[in-house]
Design a protein around this nucleic acid. Structure first.
Lengths: 213, 213
DNA sequence: ACTCGCTGTTACCGTTAGTAACACGCAGGT
DNA sequence: ACCTGCGTGTTACTAACGGTAACAGCGAGT
């Protein structure tokens, strides 16, 4: 009875929610993840309690905000991952897609990867639970693709998840470092990472020349 | 003239600083990174202003605290990295050392990897500058080892840094996920990651059987 | 006319980082 | 003996933040 209202005010509320999210987006992109609820409310032309009515608390707002961007990013990554090309090309293209995204909008990236903190984090053992949902989602996504595409023998379900999270972490950390220092252009970074994934670390010669040791 | 005092009060001040750091350590390990300055001061048996006299601000305290732990962790990683064994064994052993460390003291790990936030972060463009110093240091450290040990041909300086940060990121993300979900034991994770670095992603067969597409 | 649900407000609370302003004690130089 | 400097410590405060009443208007459906 009460869930099937749709009285027209519901639609208005949804629209309002989207407007508030867009205002929050502007503020967060301008001021970074430390934007205060007051600032966001001011940007939206209203005051705090309305934000709290819509999103519960700051974590709720940030979660809603993050989901939009993660959904968008994940969609484009999925496209690169599913493209009809040979494996190495797909991997390189996915890396490039990710790096292009964080290069184009570093503020969004920073917000997604360092989403502040839970206000009273249960004191303890849930390490990484609130850390970076985007990383987890990307890892799981990639794991799924790996598992359904590759034949990894027994234990493939676990192994694909290890690889998924590992590769995503590699991409993330390298991208973070690259974005901060800009030591080379994007293509070079993509090439280097792909080489790494393709076993060049194991294949490289020792510097001393002799193979032993 | 004034820097060469060493009046004996200096030594006392240094000792005091260390005591305060240890108290802060206890609190952070007990309460997580959200520990308040008041709580830390109380644990040390004093009040806030003294902390501020010693460390400037919360960021200063946290930086000092982080440096101790990162130094310790980096030292043990260096040991594993420099051990006299074949390359794959060294890599696996380094991964295992890291994972054992975060497994043994997840609180420390959480503190180091998610070091709260700068209180008024300069609004903007310094993406990742304040993010995770430990990750950066590990990346640079590994890059150095890679560069001085491996023959990567031209551009080896840049490539080794790409790999250093990439591998560290892989280790970090996989460890974070593993610590949260515990999907397998440590040895299995180490094996999976080492396989990944050894090119098993490139070598694996397609699931559909046919190699083409 | 009346209620329901959404809009919005002002004014407040508790906690936190950070800062005066003040006071004690203990060295050393005169 | 006296004072000066410095490190120790305190209480009491500010400013900002997340979050929460309590209250009021407004438009649509019955």
């Amino acid at each position: 009875m009460e869930t099937r209202q749709r009285t027209g005010q519901q639609r208005s509320a949804d629209r309002r929610r989207r407007e508030l999210l867009e205002a929050a987006d502007r503020v967060v992109l301008r001021d970074g993840p430390h934007a205060s609820m007051n600032a966001i409310a001011a940007e939206a032309g209203i005051t705090k309690p309305i934000l709290y009515r819509h999103f519960g608390d700051k974590g709720g707002l940030y979660a809603a905000l993050a989901q939009r961007h993660t959904d968008a990013l994940l969609a484009s990554l999925r496209a690169a991952l599913d493209a009809p090309a040979e494996r190495r090309r797909r991997v390189a293209s996915t890396l490039d897609t990710y790096l292009a995204a964080i290069e184009a909008r570093p503020q969004v990236y920073r917000f997604l990867m360092h989403p502040a903190d839970s206000p009273q984090g249960e004191a303890g053992f849930d390490v990484g639970k609130h850390s970076a949902p985007l990383l987890r989602r990307m890892g799981e996504e990639l794991a799924q693709v790996i598992e359904e595409r590759l034949d990894l023998g027994p234990g493939s379900e676990r192994l694909s998840r290890v690889w998924g999270h590992g590769i995503v972490g590699m991409m993330h950390a390298a991208g973070d470092w690259w974005l901060g220092e800009r030591p080379c252009d994007r293509a070079e970074l993509v090439e280097g990472l792909t080489d790494l994934l393709w076993g060049r670390l194991a294949a490289a010669d020792d510097r001393t020349g002799g193979p032993g040791f």
